[in-house]
Deep mutational scan, measured.
Amino acid sequence: SKDTIRINGIDIDVKDLHEEWKRLVEEALKRGDEELAIELLERALKE
């Protein structure tokens, strides 16, 4: 798994994120759902 995830052309540092969150965000991006990916990231970062 990578340490960054690219959303809207912005590389976001996710190395401190739990693997499960990372996977969910990557799944959302694979489906092209950037809005969901951002929402998941925000939730993950609050934890």
Score class of each variant (00 low, 15 high):
K2S: 13
L45A: 13
L24G: 02
K15S: 14
G32K: 03
D16F: 13
K15D: 07
E42T: 07
A37M: 03
R43Y: 03
L29H: 01
K22Q: 13
L29S: 01
L17M: 07
K46M: 09
K46W: 02
I38K: 15
K15V: 06
K22S: 07
R6W: 03
E26P: 00
R6Y: 05
H18V: 06
K22I: 15
W21G: 11
L45V: 12
K46D: 06
K46E: 06
K30E: 15
I7F: 03
D33R: 04
L17P: 01
K30T: 10
D11I: 07
R23S: 13
E35V: 15
G32W: 03
D13C: 11
D3H: 10
A37G: 02
K22G: 12
A28L: 10
I12R: 09
V14R: 02
V14I: 15
N8E: 04
L40R: 02
L24K: 06
I7W: 02
E27A: 10
K2L: 13
A44W: 11
H18M: 09
R6E: 04
E20K: 12
I5L: 12
I5K: 04
A28S: 02
E34L: 14
L45S: 10
E27R: 03
L17G: 01
A37F: 03
E35P: 12
L45Q: 11
L29M: 08
K15Q: 11
I10W: 05
I12M: 09
E34S: 15
K46I: 07
T4L: 13
L41T: 04
K15I: 07
E34V: 15
T4E: 05
V14Q: 03
L29N: 01
G9L: 04
W21S: 14
E19S: 04
R6L: 09
A44H: 06
V25I: 13
E20D: 15
G32P: 01
L40M: 09
D3F: 00
E47Q: 10
E35A: 15
V25T: 00
W21M: 15
D11N: 07
I12N: 02
E19H: 09
A37T: 02
E20H: 15
T4N: 08
I7H: 03
I5M: 06
L36A: 12
E39F: 03
R6K: 11
K46V: 08
A44G: 14
T4R: 10
E34D: 11
L17W: 08
H18L: 13
E20C: 03
L41M: 08
T4I: 14
W21H: 15
R43K: 12
E20A: 08
V14E: 02
L24A: 13
L40V: 05
L24Q: 11
K2C: 07
L29C: 03
R23N: 13
I10T: 09
K30G: 13
E19W: 08
L17T: 01
T4P: 05
A44V: 04
G9I: 03
V14P: 04
I5Q: 03
D3K: 06
E26T: 10
I5Y: 01
I10R: 13
I10P: 01
V14L: 07
W21R: 12
I38F: 12
L40I: 13
E34F: 13
E26M: 14
I5S: 02
W21I: 15
N8Y: 02
L36P: 00
A44L: 09
D13M: 11
E19V: 04
E39Y: 04
K22N: 05
L45H: 11
K15M: 07
I38C: 12
V14F: 10
W21C: 14
E47W: 01
R31C: 09
E47K: 06
L40K: 00
D13G: 05
E34Q: 14
L41F: 04
K15R: 13
A44Q: 03
N8R: 15
L40F: 06
L36I: 05
D33C: 07
L17F: 06
I7K: 02
G9Y: 03
W21E: 14
K2P: 15
T4H: 12
G9V: 02
K2W: 12
V14A: 07
